[in-house]
Design a protein around this nucleic acid. Structure first.
Length: 131
RNA sequence: GACGCCGCCCAGGCGAUCGCUGGUCCGGCCCUCCGCGAGGAGGGACCGGGCGGGAGGAAAGUCCGAGCUCCGAAGAGCACGAUGCCGGGUAACGCCCGGUGACGGAAACGUCGAGGAAAGUGCAACAGAGAGAGACCGCCCGCGCCCGAGGCUCCGGCCUCCGCGCGGGCAAGGGUGAAACGGCGGGGUAAGAGCCCACCGCGCCCGCGGCAACGCGGGUGGCAUGGCAUACCCCAUCGGGAGCAAGGCCGCAUAGGCGGGCGCGCCGCGCGUUGCCUCACCCGCGAGGGUGGGGCCGCGCGCGGAUCGUAGGACGGCUCGUCCGAAGUCCGCGGGUUGGCUGCUCGAGGUCGUCGGUGACGGCGGCCCUAGAGGAAUGAUCGCCCCUCCGCGAGGAGCAAUCGUCGCGGGGUACAGAACUCGGCUUACGGACGACGUCGACC
RNA sequence: GGCCCCAUCGUCUAGCGGUUAGGACAUCGGCCUCUCACGUCGGUAACGCGGGUUCAAUUCCCGCUGGGGUCG
């Protein structure tokens, strides 16, 4: 097993394939904050760590602004290993104004909504188990 | 100092911590092979660690030009498209450099699709007589008529002016227009006209300078040739088409299906068969019938062959051309796939020196290796410093406006993210430096 | 990432060198009606932006801006 630091965020912790994005975005389990929308779906393995991906549309700005939002989000994923329950796939959609936030502001916004994430993530896992 | 103009350069720096990414090395783990064995060799897409690397001048727009790859060999012609003063640079260009001309500016300097309008076609609303060759008003001459006015008179009339008609000459003037048949002045004439003359413009010829575009000078013609080719077009030059989601390999999956188009040719041999012709034998008195053999034509099957390669088909604009060719082949639909590896980064590469060139650039020599991602990396947090703006305070120079120094607090630091790779163009945008032009002040 | 289109009243569109930039729907006002609707008459309202060619540009050329489509 990988030892290393718990603050890493390698490729296998991310949502990377088009079918995964489509599957998660079709899910009914969602939570919203002021600048972000979170979508939850059960992952392939219930015991694996959660995976996350970020979506930023062209409406929010040019490549520089959109890349900045993704980087800030990834940094927050990296620093909060227990933000979401294990075994779920999460897609985060940025909303208007997200590019103006600093990393600290994003982190505070997310931690404030953590209890909603846990509830929605559990619901998504339960839905898959019943199926 | 102000305003302007041109060129060149930079794209905040350092440190700490936590990360991302691909390269390389080491270790672990796993796999394969060899060995009786300890072990050895090779591999790995897994895990950990060390080392060094990681956005731009525009990475952008995708507007040009190439490399590279495939399509049908990338060859010729037509069509179509692009370019368009001259010379040079370059792999190439619609780019760059130098020159010429025109235009703009007081200047530094800038801008320009800047070939052909005596090859042809076309266009020019409205206005105007007329928009490519014309005559409305008008001017002039001759003849005729006559209301009127004037003059002369030998009292019969005659002349002049005005008006009308007919025939002829003219294109100066009027006015319209964006543009009106060279301009302006003089001579000339019945009135006029390059009809003649001077100057200017234009065309042609000659000489000189220049590789050339073109410039300068002289002579000559006597205006013939109006504008628009960013209207069609002509001329010259260039271009086959598509694009890294090109293309190659592996794996997986699905299908071997449905509909439609065009097709079953030529020569030889063999077999079968319908028809026709013919021969022999048999039967019948006979018309005729039967059996067998041979020949011909058609059809079917099989084998072999040929080339006029026909019909037909393929070919990313078309034709020539090329290929396939009676084997089936082609088109459309349906179905299925959006996994991995590769292409993928060393190249018309940078940089320094030197030589040649006005320059773009080129030759030679030395040195350097400089991102390769893939829901897509190059980041985040903190500290210090740099630049700059605002406010407050301190003290300095100066008569003053003001200028610069230090400290504290607060703010700002542009445009913007590689996606196969180069050369350009265009657009966005913060700042530093230098040269030059004009104006003003001081020494 | 590549390739290809489009832009005209509030909306859908016609026009393609000289137009009062036309039409339909919508909107505003009048007439009709007891009222509304229908009908009818009239009005308001547009060439994405910046250069160039031309006497003249919505139209032709160039550059931007903003939309859209498509691709093993």
């Amino acid at each position: 097993m990988p030892s290393g630091s718990s603050f890493r965020f390698p490729k296998e912790r991310r949502v990377r394939k088009r079918p995964d994005f489509v599957r998660v975005q079709a899910s009914p389990h969602r939570a919203t904050t002021k600048h972000f929308v979170f979508l939850f779906a059960a992952g392939e393995r219930a015991d694996a760590p959660w995976r996350a991906g970020v979506v930023v549309t062209r409406k929010l700005g040019g490549a520089v602004e959109r890349n900045r939002i993704k980087r800030v989000c990834r940094e927050c994923f990296r620093k909060t290993r227990d933000l979401f329950p294990d075994g779920v796939d999460v897609v985060v959609i940025a909303r208007a104004g997200a590019h103006l936030l600093s990393q600290g502001e994003v982190l505070a916004e997310w931690l404030g909504a953590k209890r909603h994430f846990e509830k929605k993530g559990a619901a998504a896992r339960l839905a898959k188990a019943e199926k």
